[in-house]
Each structure stands twice: as structure tokens, then as C-alpha cells.
């Protein structure tokens, strides 16, 4: 009986296989890039180029659509709202997670694990169960149709607490003992020793809150009606419904709002990949 033995692949065949893999991979990679590229090309088309058959793939670099779309809406205001909502969410979520992450690692008290469990249980609550009740709560708080309605529900980041607690637990207890000798309080130690050491973790948390908050659409759509408090994404959706055949300008609007994130991604890719591998990207 002859066993099946994998013979070493002859060098020629291996070369072909390697090349084949490289080509197929490239095709897959480009397929993911292509939809962004075609929006980019369309946004730079001249007026006569859009409804042409067959479509073309070389941009004409006519920036008039961008100029026109910039005049079509009060972008500065919408970008301002998005920026305000995103940054405030980051600040609040970082503050709540730093404080509680520290309490759950450096302080000794009864019920520490119970509190941590109470935070982790939040992850088990399905988001769609909260849509309507949270709307009602914000209504009762008189916060509907404000920027705060888009910030406060995201003020607690369980992943933030989880990561910071983990990080603080890994710090040597002797740091705190030494600080205590010098007469430092917990808050002082937290602010001048623990937080600076935790900077990389804080950065990762902020990055994912940034992406989630910048891209959020459903919640702002639900809780706001006046344009003056709405983020960019909601305005883009409104343009999309109102000008559904103006592909050049719509594409320009799409590219305009996608670009900041693409740039961010290209610079911070490493952090994003590491974050996703650890499961942090789930908090959206």
C-alpha cells in the first residue's frame, strides 16, 4: 500500500504558484479599492462625462463638483458638529473609563468584581433594544435634537474600562507604594503617573471612539431634526435623497466625507489592526 507522499514542489511550479497567488491577491485587493476609486473618478468628471457609455476610469480632474457641492450645504457647520460630537464623546468616555478603570485595579473595596461585572453586562444588551427607550429618556431629559443627545449615550465605554483596568493591573504596585510614601493621593498618582503610562491604551480607545462617532448615522438620524445640530453623515444622506441623479456632486460629497478617515487610516493603520485583533473594534 503506498502512502500519499507530498513530493517537494519543483521550483518552476512553485514560481508559477507564487505568481498566481500574487495576481489573485492583487485582484482581490483592487476589488476592495475600486468602489472608492470610481467615486473619486466620478467626482472629478466634467458635466458631459457622467452619463456616458462605456464609463471611463481615468479622472479628468475637474474640481467644479467640489466647489459646487461645497456651496450646496453649510459644510463648516456640519463638520463642526461632527467634530464637537466626536471630541466630546472621546473626552467623556476617556474620563469615565480612566476613573473607573483605576478604581477597579488600584483600590481595594468590597464588591469590586461585582461592579466590573455590572459594566461587562452592558455588552450583552443588544443595541436595538435600547433605541426606543433611549429616545424616550432623552425626550424626558429635554435633550432631543441637541448635540448632547448624540454624545451622552456613548459616555461610557466598557471596552475602555476593560482595557484600562487590564493595563493598570499590570503596573507594579510598588509605583503606588512609592508615590504614597511621598504623600501623593490616589488622584494625584492617577493623574501624574498612571495616565501618562497608559497613553498608548488611551490612544487606541480614542481612535476607535473617533471612528465610531465620526461615522455614526442611525442615532443622529433618530434623535435630531434641526440641521444646526446634525453631523456630516446625516447631511450627506439628505443630499443623497434630494439629488439622487446628480452623481458628480454626490460623489464629491461622498469623497469629501470619506477622505479624512482614509487619511487617518493610512497613518494609524497599525493601531487599528492591533485594536481589531484584540476585539476593540466591536464597540461600534
Amino acid at each position: 500500500m503506498s502512502a500519499r507522499i507530498a513530493r517537494p514542489t519543483p521550483p518552476n511550479r512553485r514560481k508559477i504558484l507564487t505568481g498566481f497567488r500574487a495576481v489573485v491577491s492583487l485582484a482581490v485587493g483592487l476589488a476592495f479599492l475600486f468602489p472608492l476609486y470610481i467615486a473619486f473618478v466620478t467626482s472629478l468628471d466634467t458635466a458631459g462625462q457622467v452619463f456616458v457609455f462605456p464609463p471611463h476610469l481615468v479622472p479628468s480632474f475637474d474640481f467644479s463638483s467640489y466647489v459646487r457641492v461645497w456651496q450646496m450645504a453649510r459644510w463648516a457647520m456640519y463638520y463642526g458638529n461632527t467634530l464637537f460630537i466626536t471630541l466630546t464623546t472621546i473626552i467623556i468616555a476617556l474620563a469615565t473609563s480612566i476613573l473607573s478603570g483605576y478604581a477597579l485595579s488600584f483600590l481595594q473595596f468590597k464588591g469590586r468584581n461585582a461592579v466590573f461585572m455590572m459594566f461587562l453586562l452592558v455588552l450583552m444588551v443588544p443595541a436595538e433594544a435600547l433605541l426606543i427607550p433611549n429616545y424616550v429618556i432623552l425626550h424626558e431629559m429635554n435633550l432631543l435634537n441637541t448635540r448632547w443627545a448624540q454624545i451622552l449615550p456613548y459616555g461610557a465605554s466598557v471596552f475602555g474600562v476593560f482595557l484600562l483596568r487590564q493595563f493598570f493591573l499590570g503596573l507594579p504596585k510598588s509605583y503606588w507604594e512609592a508615590a504614597k510614601m511621598d504623600g501623593a493621593s490616589h488622584l494625584r498618582f492617577l493623574w501624574s503617573v498612571a495616565v501618562p503610562l497608559a497613553k498608548p491604551v488611551l490612544f487606541t480607545i480614542s481612535l476607535f471612539i473617533f471612528i465610531g462617532s465620526w461615522n455614526s448615522f442611525q442615532w443622529p438620524l433618530i434623535v435630531t431634526t434641526s440641521h444646526s445640530v446634525q453631523p456630516v453623515e446625516v447631511e450627506v444622506s439628505r443630499l443623497m435623497l434630494a439629488h439622487s441623479v446628480d452623481w458628480r456632486r454626490l460623489s464629491a460629497a461622498g469623497i469629501m466625507t470619506t477622505m479624512p478617515l482614509v487619511v487617518l487610516f493610512l497613518f494609524l493603520q497599525r493601531h487599528i489592526i492591533r485594536g481589531i485583533s484584540r476585539g476593540e473594534g466591536l464597540q461600534e
Binding site: 472608492l36 471612528i211 461615522n215 448615522f217 460629497a253 478617515l261 487610516f265 473594534g281
Partner: peptide, 11 residues
Amino acid sequence: YITPVIATAIG
């Protein structure tokens, strides 16, 4: 994955 849904849905 990191692009906004509404904006990229246009393309």
C-alpha cells in the same frame, strides 16, 4: 471598514 457608510454607499 473605516469609511462612513452613507458616503461610500453613494459610489
